[in-house]
Design a protein around this nucleic acid. Structure first.
Lengths: 198, 198
DNA sequence: GTCATAATCCTAACACTGTAAAGATAAATA
DNA sequence: TATTTATCTTTACAGTGTTAGGATTATGAC
């Protein structure tokens, strides 16, 4: 294996530029937000000229997509939680979802925001990752309701955690307490909505 | 009243540049999305040099904020709906909310997205507008549950319509039918969650 | 080991962007 | 009418994404 210098590059070739760019991009992303994800700034941090990046990503947006795919992996990991008991069967999933958004606000916005308006722009691998996360929730839902009700219930739950996560990370909540407790309470309400009709 | 030329400006002074800029900005916003809301492009459309805008807005972001405030007015208007009956008391509100987001996707993202991460950046007038819209929902909620449950229920409902609206306008829903019917069904589920505990 | 080729990096340049500075024009006011 | 003030202008600077073409190094064939 060839030697791969970390930061103070000696050789003309970097050796691992693609990953280095992604790493720096991730930093810029969380520091400055998705809209200030500048390719030149990223290259500068890595210590390389801006056009070099084009040997590894065809455009700035492609680099952003790389970050989003990375995010999809991490998110799928974070959502692999054991279901709760009874009424709260979906509580761990919902809490993990919102927690991930709050822990990685810029990444979350990048993944679901204006940048990638259509799922179709993601790679097949990412779509599979998303499906896998979704399936965890679906299988929990199937224990609580007939199969035909699952799609709408899934969308219902996704809308809640997505909306709640974004409201929290975008600071839209006036002066409400934004503690984890609020998330729990909202999800509790959602659980009631998902209770099997009697 | 001085003559106010519409488009082909004859006089050196425009006469109504501030409004003209906002109008052009609105067009650019819906055509190209919030992240491509370029001050130069807007000025160009109005037929004026870019720095002229700085006599009416201190920065590009200030112009964007002007659009967001305009959006707050329109949204408050759109949410002034009569409550439904019984279980569906919040249905008209929820449907109007999602419908507004879908009818003005870029504007909605601008209002609630990265650009204005904190409510505190809005003017007092806008905060009042938002409060007024929120109060409509709150008063409907108060008919269905004890007062102490209203804040969480309000957040719950807001999260749903916010999340559902964004998932729809960002095209995140795989191949689901994105008809109005889906919105109705999800809101129906939410209504069950909001039912008074027995 | 030598050499050609391909991959990777560079600089220079172009068309954009937001914004500041300083000057020209017209409207408002005294 | 003269002066002040508001509005719009050109010019300029630093930043952006991206392309073109040249320099350097690693790779693979002989």
């Amino acid at each position: 294996m060839p030697p791969r210098p970390k930061k103070p590059r000696k050789s003309y070739h970097h050796g691992d530029l693609r990953n280095a760019l992604l790493k720096a991009a991730r930093e810029v992303l969380e520091e400055r937000g998705p809209s200030h994800l500048a390719l030149r700034e990223i290259s500068r941090r890595v210590g390389v000229s801006a056009p070099s990046a084009y040997h590894h990503f065809p455009s700035r947006d492609a680099l952003a997509l790389g970050l989003a795919e990375q995010g999809a992996h991490e998110m799928a990991e974070a959502l692999m939680v054991k279901p709760g008991e009874g009424q709260d069967i979906l509580m761990p999933y919902g809490e993990a979802y919102v927690a991930f958004a709050r822990a990685n606000p810029a990444l979350y916005r990048l993944m679901f925001g204006e940048g990638f308006p259509a799922v179709s722009r993601y790679s097949e691998a990412v779509r599979e990752l998303r499906q896998r996360s979704y399936d965890i929730m679906k299988s929990a839902l199937e224990k609580r309701m007939p199969a035909e009700a699952v799609p709408i219930a899934g969308l219902f739950l996704w809308a809640i955690v997505h909306g709640l996560g974004l409201l929290l990370i975008d600071g839209q909540l006036e002066n409400n307490d934004t503690s984890k407790d609020i998330v729990h309470q909202v999800l509790k309400l959602a659980g009631t909505g998902l209770a099997p009709r009697t």
